[in-house]
Amino acid sequence: MSTRTANPMWSALASAFRTNKTSWVGFVMIVLIILAALLAPVLAPADPIEQDILRKLEPPSAESILGTDSFGRDILSRILYGARISLVVGLASILIASLIGGALGVIAGYVGGRVDRLIMGAMDVMLAFPTLLLGLMIVAMIGPSLQNLIIAIALTEIAPFARIARAPTLLLREREFIEAGRALGFSDLRLMFVHILPNIVSDLVVMGTLWMAQAIRTEASLSFIGLGVPPPTATWGSMVREGFEHILDAPWLAVLPSLAILLTVIALNMLGDGLRDAIDPKLRRE
């Protein structure tokens, strides 16, 4: 009988949780946030876009736990639904960015020479722009919508993923198993994406967690300046902006969604840092 043994990457991730309390806390927080977003229709006490002008700017009370905004919409409900936007934008943009950036980095590192200089040169140009500015330019060009927001944020984060993927590719390329693959007649594409890529997925996962926090911040910032998902859809960024107009008379309007952003970003950073600490020494040793 053959026994299935653990894939070394997953066992590294599992031991990250076992040995690192911070990443465990971050993981639990993220799971809770995701659950809250998924269960928003069940958890939300009210419709997030239904206005009730008579009940506008109410402070937290038994009726609406976190109060209402200037259109009388329930803030708790809006935060719960807003989590969906933030998470979808964060996750989708990171998936796109890591796929494209990871592939570009592997190609640059594996092929080397002129291709490497061309790809990494382009990445350096992209890195030279502040993320927010780049996102702003792209959204301004293609217009604000959920889909465009995701594309814009993904584009701003390709470069860091390309860098993260290229460095280990340069090392792996020199390993004898790649040479063995060439001797066995494997194509370059197979060597890059079947042999090298799985060896750097854990680096990309760690990076993805950290950059997802960045993506959520970018989304909030773009929404804050009115270039996010158009109203009346609830997003954390647009809630902060709307709340800002009443920062003196109803501070909870801006503070509560800000807190939601803060918590999510902190949770992702805790998770990512913990994963990185756990994975780095283990995988480098091999």
């Binding site: 894939n7 990457m9 390993r175 004898e176 198993f177 040479e179 063995a180 042999h195 060896n199 091999e286």
Partner: peptide
């Protein structure tokens, strides 16, 4: 190859 640690793909 020479190096049994580098000649097999760990993944």
């Amino acid at each position: 190859f020479q190096d049994p640690y580098s000649s097999l793909n760990p993944r």
